[in-house]
């Protein structure tokens, strides 16, 4: 129940930040911060896969409606949600407790979490810019946009994760 509430609050806050702030930032004309995917990255692993897919799809859909890009973020989010488990287990051992984890700096360790976060962000950026450009002729632009946006988003999400950690610690 607590996680559900957290998830909803996090979703609302991040979607609002995305739509009101991040969508208006295009750093150096190439880097766009994408913060709302943190919900998918953060979502606990014990969460039902279908539920995660639904949350991801709805998140993407809301962002799409807000930024007038119907289907783009919804598709990318759905694909990212499907890839979450494989990416997570690429860096973490599959044991009895691994399914109880909520991916974060504190639960996974800095190095593993950074690898996991970077992979997820990179996947999303490549997906979203590929869908947006939708042409193999623009591979160079896609690579540049995805590269810079991944770097920027990664740094922002590390920051958000630290804030979450801080909140958790304060509550404790």
């Amino acid at each position: 129940m607590k996680t559900a509430l957290q998830l909803i609050v996090l979703s609302v806050v991040l979607v609002l930040i995305q739509l009101l702030i991040c969508n208006n930032i295009v750093l150096f004309n190439v880097a766009i911060p994408i913060v709302f995917i943190y919900v998918i990255i953060w979502a606990p692993l014990w969460l039902n896969q279908s539920l995660l897919l639904t949350i991801a799809f709805l998140l993407g859909l809301i962002v799409d409606i807000g930024s007038d890009t119907p289907g783009m973020n919804a598709l990318a989010c759905t694909l990212l949600a499907m890839l979450k488990r494989p990416v997570f287990y690429a860096y973490m051992e599959h044991d009895d407790h691994s399914d109880e984890i909520t991916p974060s700096l504190s639960s996974m360790g800095v190095w593993d979490y950074c690898k996991y976060l970077l992979t997820m962000v990179a996947i999303y950026c490549i997906l979203i810019f590929s869908i947006e450009y939708f042409s193999f002729a623009d591979v160079k632009e896609i690579a540049i946009m995805a590269g810079y946006s991944t770097a920027m988003t990664f740094l922002l999400l590390i920051g958000i994760d630290s804030l979450m950690k801080g909140k958790r610690e304060k509550r404790l």
Binding site: N48, Q49, S50, L53, T54, A56, F57, G60, L61, D64, T69, P70, G71, M72, A74, L75, T78, L79, M82, I131, F134, S135
Partner: peptide, 29 residues
């Protein structure tokens, strides 16, 4: 395999939205 069905449904829905509402993607498609 429910999650796969859910996944396929969402992908199809997204693609429908994408190709119906975006002129550029539709023309490329």
């Amino acid at each position: 395999y429910s999650s796969w069905f859910v996944f396929l449904i969402y992908v199809l829905l997204s693609c429908m939205l994408l190709f119906r509402s975006n002129d550029y993607q539709r023309s490329v498609y």
